[in-house]
Design a binder for these strands. Structure first.
Lengths: 225, 225
DNA sequence: CGGAACGTTGACATATATCAAAGGGAGTGG
DNA sequence: CCACTCCCTTTGATATATGTCAACGTTCCG
């Protein structure tokens, strides 16, 4: 039982570098939870009780406006943690989280995790690295929202995905386009028009969730500017 | 000499809770630097060599687009640290920093600070708290940029300043309106029109850097939506 | 005194959101 | 296996917020 959890921990970037002894300790402060599709995991301004590690499925972390518009802050997939930052500080979740698929997570209760950190400074250092990484990603997001138009943001997204998948000349979207729109800070209609624009200029070819790169140079020149 | 630095450390939120013994140790890994107005402290994608604590003056941390537009991520004033997150991870500054006034900072070199943390886990915990706080602020910024129009962002800013200054019925801007525009993700012209709009609706009265609140209820209702 | 930076206003351009409609796929139930 | 519905996606017409460009007054500072 606990061994299974240790295996799951090993597959996360946050814990993968630890030795088995420590992982076993960690596994004792953790609960495995199943979450069905579209379930609300927590809502913004709920008291922050825990943070999560996704072991199966996808979770979106997002902000909502009064009139129902959403901005996705991150999509957490297998191996990703989310809501780490909520535990420290005022104690309220600063955003909402909802599963996009049937999902399995490890649940790290606040109190147990705190005492874990205190006894194992190594974890604190890893956590610092993780929070720093998140901060850099958020800076990037702010930059894009504030300084780049939507076609450019889309191009940036495609380039990032290309790099993650080893620079093939094609990517396949793992998320619905509606979701992608919300990640990019826009709405499906506008995203659709941006795809069109890139396609009209013979930079990409779109067929459902498949995006073929026709002109990598032009794509990179959009991003570079 | 070192005692002066200890006093400066005590006035920062990051270090204020530590005892004198630890502060003295910290003070030994630190350099006091003077920076004249408008000096570029580091530029985005420079190798990250240090983080900073402002002891006098103001520093803006910002992103730049290819065509010269700026988005300010934060303004660091007396007692604030900045660039903490840059030290961990890929080792490049994710944004630029420039002084807005004559400024005095404590400079925490990377290597010395790392060994300091390793020997003093307390610092790591404080750092985690600080990074979490920054992350929440950045989430807030993303939310505002993506979901609120500029008049609403301005109202949010005014409300925040009111709270910080103890809810008087008046605030005085500590930054130029050009700077404020860049903090809010817009340009001076548009900011000026937003001020006008709030003034026309008798919600505020603007006279240079002074903003008088005429209708606190309306102001809060803009923010609430 | 003179120039530079700041702040404001006006006319205009443009990107993006909104609203409405329709097609297509996937899943469900009869 | 068909028909129906729901959700996703796309397209078109239109509205709106915000950026751009130009001009001008003001203040600040050398």
């Amino acid at each position: 039982m606990k061994k299974d959890i240790v295996e799951l921990l090993k597959k996360s970037s946050l814990f993968s570098s630890f030795d088995d002894e420590l992982l076993l300790k960690i596994s004792e402060s953790v609960v495995l939870k199943n979450i069905s599709k579209n379930e609300l995991i927590f809502y913004e301004s709920d008291p922050a009780a825990a943070f999560y590690l996704v072991t199966k499925g996808q979770v979106k972390v997002f902000k909502t406006s009064a009139d129902g518009k959403e901005q996705i802050l991150m999509i957490a997939s297998k191996g990703d943690t989310f809501a780490e930052a909520a535990l420290f500080g005022e104690g309220l979740y600063p955003a909402s989280a909802q599963s996009l698929t049937d999902t399995e997570v490890l649940y790290f209760g606040k109190d147990k995790f705190f005492s874990l950190i205190e006894k194992n400074p190594k974890i604190a250092l890893k956590l610092i690295a993780r929070l720093s990484e998140l901060l850099r990603k958020m800076s990037k997001l702010v930059e894009e929202l504030s300084l780049a138009d939507i076609t450019t943001r889309l191009a940036l997204f495609i380039v990032k995905r290309l790099e993650e998948s080893g620079n093939k000349s094609e990517i396949e979207l793992t998320e619905k386009k509606t979701i992608l729109a919300s990640q990019l800070g826009t709405i499906p209609e506008t995203l659709s028009r941006s795809f069109n624009k890139l396609a009209r200029e013979k930079i990409i070819e779109v067929e459902g969730p498949k995006i073929k790169i026709l002109d990598s140079d032009k794509l990179h020149s959009i991003v570079g500017e």
